[in-house]
């Protein structure tokens, strides 16, 4: 079986797996820089308007944000367990854990959705639609626009990660992956961890502002 999956341009399976893993890490590095640009925007405006910016963001619900942090960290943990078990050839267990992680992802999105609904209700919306405070001082609208944009972009990544997790879980059940064939499982796991890492930074920047 393992001989079949070696594609012709590689010498050995080990090198082929290394190639796939390296490519995934590079993709993640690239993806992180995508968020990096937004972190730079955040830092720049927070440097320019330290008080207004923080005041605006202070409105966010710390409780919901922290719940989401715990949810994502736990989902990351279950994904890591899943990757661990596929190496021990326990594909069903992995599938189960990945399904659980997908559900955690869904919980995250639901909590995020509640928050968004709340913001929409209060008119705490991005850019020109922001009317939560009348005549907001410079920087407030920027803070909210950034909040919406960065969390929404992160949310898209969560959705993408959930789809990947679900697909891999199904393939695990079908017996596609096992102890000797798990780079795809591992790479999907890596992607989910990246989503987690991004949130680890978004959380203090957008919720823990006093």
């Amino acid at each position: 079986m393992s001989a079949q999956r070696l594609v012709e341009q590689f010498e050995s399976l080990e090198k082929q797996d290394h190639a796939a893993r390296l490519a995934m890490w590079m993709f993640l590095g690239s993806e992180t820089l995508l968020f990096g640009a937004l972190f730079a925007v955040y830092a720049y405006y927070r440097g320019m308007y330290p008080d207004e910016f923080v005041q605006a963001l202070h409105h966010n619900s710390v409780a919901l944000g922290t719940t989401n942090t715990v949810v994502l960290i736990t989902s990351s943990f279950t994904v890591a367990l899943g990757v661990h078990f596929i190496r021990e050839n326990k594909a069903r267990l992995t599938a189960g854990l990945f399904v659980v992680s997908t559900l955690f992802g869904a919980v995250f999105l639901v909590v995020k959705g509640i928050e968004y609904a709340h913001h929409i209700h209060e008119n705490a919306l991005p850019s020109g639609m922001y009317t939560f405070i009348d005549k907001p001082p410079a920087g407030v609208v920027l803070g909210y626009t950034l909040y919406w944009f960065m969390t929404a972009l992160h949310g898209l990544h969560v959705i993408a990660g959930m789809i990947m997790l679900a697909v891999v879980a199904v393939l695990c059940l079908k017996g596609r992956y096992g102890a000797h064939r798990n780079v795809a499982v591992e790479n999907v796991g890596l992607y989910w961890h990246l989503v987690d890492v991004v949130w680890i930074f978004l959380w203090p920047l957008f919720y823990l502002t006093d």
Binding site: L22, G29, S76, V83
Partner: peptide, 27 residues
């Protein structure tokens, strides 16, 4: 731990180092 970087080759770690470095630099 979760992403198994401890057990991986230097090339993969280098990517992580560069990513961090460039973000810090940009910011």
């Amino acid at each position: 731990i979760f992403m198994h970087l401890v057990e991986q080759r230097f090339a993969n770690r280098l990517i992580v180092i560069l990513t961090f470095l460039f973000i810090v630099l940009l910011v």
